Simulated scan of single mutants.
Amino acid sequence: MVVEKHLNKVILASDVYAICFQHALTTEKQEIMGLLIGEIDEEQCISRISGCMILHRSDKQPDRVEISPEQLCGASMYAEKLANTLNRPMRVVGWYHSHPHITVWPSHVDIGTQTTYQMMDPLFVGLIFSVYQSDSRARSNQVQLTCFQASTHEGSKLERREVPLFIETSPFQSYNLDGIANLPKILIQEEVESHSISDNETSDPIARLHNDAFKTLALVHIVSKVSRPMCDDLVQRLNATKLRIKELERIKAQLLMGRN
C-alpha cells in the first residue's frame, strides 16, 4: 500500500536536467535509466535534485527498465561520498527513464515500480523523458518531461499523481560534469557486452563477422552522435563562461573607477 505522505514540489538543477535529457537522446530504440541524488525538506515535502547517476543497462529493452538492488546500493554510496564532499546531506531521491517514440505518461509497470520505491521512501519521485515523438503538423520531434508519484484512487486503484516540477538555473557542477563525461564510456560498455553475448551464442564465423560489423556501427554512432556533440556543447559553454568573466571584470573595473 502506498504511504499517503507525498511530495509538494520538485526542484531540478538545470545541469542535472541537461544530463538526463542528453542520456534520453542517446537511443530511440530502448529505454534508458538513472537515479537522482539530492536533498529532501521533510517538513515542506520538497525535493531538491542536484545530482544523478547514469546506470548501466545489462538488458536493453524497448519498453521497460530495471534497476537492480546493487545499483541502488551503488547510488547510495555515491550520495554519501557527495555528501562528504559538499558538506550537506545527500541521498537517492528518485529515478528517471526515457520513453522513446511513445507518450510521456507512465505505464502501469512504471507506476508499479514507483509504488515499490515509495514503500521504502514515500517522498521518492520519478521523472520520464519522452523523446523522438514526431509531430507531422510541426514537422519536428517533440520532447516532454513529467514528474510523478504513485497514489491510490478510491482506496485500491494505483494511478499517477503529477508533482509540480521547477528547473533551477545553475552552473555545471564538477561532479555532474564527471557524470556526463562518463556517459559515452557507459554506452560503449553496454554495446560491447551485448555483442559479446551474441558472439558466445554462435560458433558461425560469418555470424560473428556480422555481429562485429554491427558493433562497429554502434560504436561509431556513439562517437558521432553522442561524444562529438557533447564536446562541442561543452566548448560552447566554456566560451560563453569566458565571455561572461570578461564582462564581469569590465563591470568591476568601472565600479572601482567610480568609487575612486
Rank of each mutant, 00 (worst) to 15 (best):
N182D: 15
S174I: 06
D204T: 06
S198H: 10
D199R: 11
Q189N: 14
N200C: 09
P184R: 07
L187N: 02
N182Q: 15
I206H: 08
L183I: 03
I186P: 00
E191N: 11
L177N: 04
S174G: 00
S198W: 06
D204K: 05
S174N: 03
D199Y: 09
S198D: 07
V192I: 13
I180M: 05
L187D: 04
E190G: 05
L183C: 02
Q189T: 14
V192H: 00
E191R: 11
I206R: 09
V192G: 01
A181R: 15
I180A: 00
D204W: 01
E190S: 08
P184I: 11
Y175L: 02
N182L: 13
E190M: 08
D178I: 07
G179W: 05
A181I: 14
L187G: 07
Q189C: 12
I197N: 05
K185Y: 14
N200L: 13
I188M: 09
E191S: 13
K185L: 14
D204A: 02
H195D: 02
I186A: 02
A181M: 15
I188F: 04
G179R: 08
N182E: 15
S194C: 10
I197A: 09
E190W: 02
N176L: 04
K185A: 15
S196R: 14
N200I: 08
V192E: 02
Q189S: 15
G179V: 09
Y175T: 06
T202P: 02
I206F: 08
D178E: 12
T202F: 00
L183N: 03
S196Q: 15
S198A: 11
T202L: 01
S174Y: 04
D178P: 00
I186T: 13
A181C: 13
I188Y: 03
L187K: 02
I206M: 09
H195L: 02
E201R: 14
